[in-house]
Design a protein around this nucleic acid. Structure first.
Lengths: 209, 209
DNA sequence: CTCGACATTGAATGGTGGTTCACATGGGCC
DNA sequence: GGCCCATGTGAACCACCATTCAATGTCGAG
């Protein structure tokens, strides 16, 4: 496993502040000195680890969409892959977003990267909406406004779910999102359980450690 | 100024990781040893500072509402006071929320406190909705569902606004919230600029430093 | 084979910063 | 006045880590 991947794991477990270079090095099976050989400072290491992880998260999710036919299914899949459902592995990614946000407040590099990631994210939503509108599936709302609203709603709900708020159960959170989408775009909220049935994919990958 | 208030300020400026006991002590005009005299460890200091600040934030906002007559105005005021508009001082509070979330992932005390704060927050929204429904102002939606959705939307939008995302301008973010409220509860989105007119209150307070 | 560039490390180094402690100070109270 | 406790401090102490460095291993090119 690479140094960056190790850093991502450790940050997710212990948090940004508590992450020591030695921890990352041990996880990667290397010495602390080697880590500093590639990344000149701890700051750079953490910054690159954060942006690398989120980059990977976005690409994985994005790739997942290209298979679906109907726009509404792509939107539903996006939601399912973003929200922490049972046993999902997005949990670790969301933990990193917390660290990313707080670091973006002070580190211009992280701030730039976060902005790019969020823009891409909302653009993905926008594109799906435009597709759906072209094909007559969706009502005519402003795609940009809708993307901002949906992305924000997902963020807010995910925060509660990740933090284990008892009022924000995975099903409830999921339903809230789907209802908002259906209401805004003008179609029925889809069957209540379209997840679970399809192959979940990415089951292995972080198994060892 | 008290030690807790000082801690809150310093955390907001430098972030949780970079906050040193000596910084807090200097800001409070005391010695580092004294800080440890009241709060036995740095951990406890940070934890109490975070929860204290958010507590205060909630109480201020809550107090603000009792003056308004119509439920829709109370809801609008809630939104205006939550979102970072021009020159507002909620900015500092949101920065603290970032730290709170990331710490709540590992610190059970912070996790408990955060849950309580968010529950109170959503309860406030619920109560306003019930009032409005009783008086016929609002449509009949499930108050709990609505509260979770609105609170989450506000969180997500505030994150973008705080981080200075160019697509999430204060006006846009505000409009997005008000439209969602109007659409869900069934009334016109209210005049476009009810802010700015009223006295903004709390102008001083963090002036010196 | 030999040279040099890269990869890698164990062991210093050095600064930082949380925590401890022995010691003031200054009232309340008998 | 003398005792006690709360409040407060400066100066150590000391553990912890990021960072540096000199030294070793590796391997492909000439």
């Amino acid at each position: 496993m690479g140094i960056l991947e190790s850093a991502v794991e450790v940050i997710g477990e212990r948090g940004l502040c508590e992450t020591r270079i030695a921890d990352v090095a041990r996880r990667a099976g290397a010495s602390a000195a080697l880590v500093l050989y590639y990344f000149d400072s701890k700051d750079r290491l953490l910054t690159e680890a954060l942006t690398h992880a989120e980059d990977r998260f976005y690409l994985e999710t994005f790739h997942e969409l290209t298979g679906l036919e109907r726009a509404r299914d792509r939107l539903a899949s996006l939601i399912d892959r973003s929200l922490p459902a049972g046993g999902s592995e997005v949990l670790g990614d969301w933990r990193l977003w917390f660290e990313l946000w707080s670091r973006a407040l002070r580190d211009p590099n992280v701030a730039r990267k976060r902005e790019a990631l969020d823009r891409r994210w909302r653009t993905t939503i926008e594109d799906i909406v435009r597709d759906g509108q072209r094909s007559g599936e969706f009502d005519e709302v402003d795609p940009k406004d809708f993307a901002l609203a949906l992305a924000s709603l997902i963020d807010g709900l995910a925060i509660q779910a990740i933090l284990g708020d008892p009022e924000a159960t995975p099903e409830r959170v999921r339903r809230t999102c789907l209802e908002m989408v259906g209401r805004e775009l003008g179609f029925e909220p889809a069957p209540s359980r379209p997840a679970k049935t399809g192959p979940v994919k990415v089951p292995a990958k972080e198994a060892r450690t």
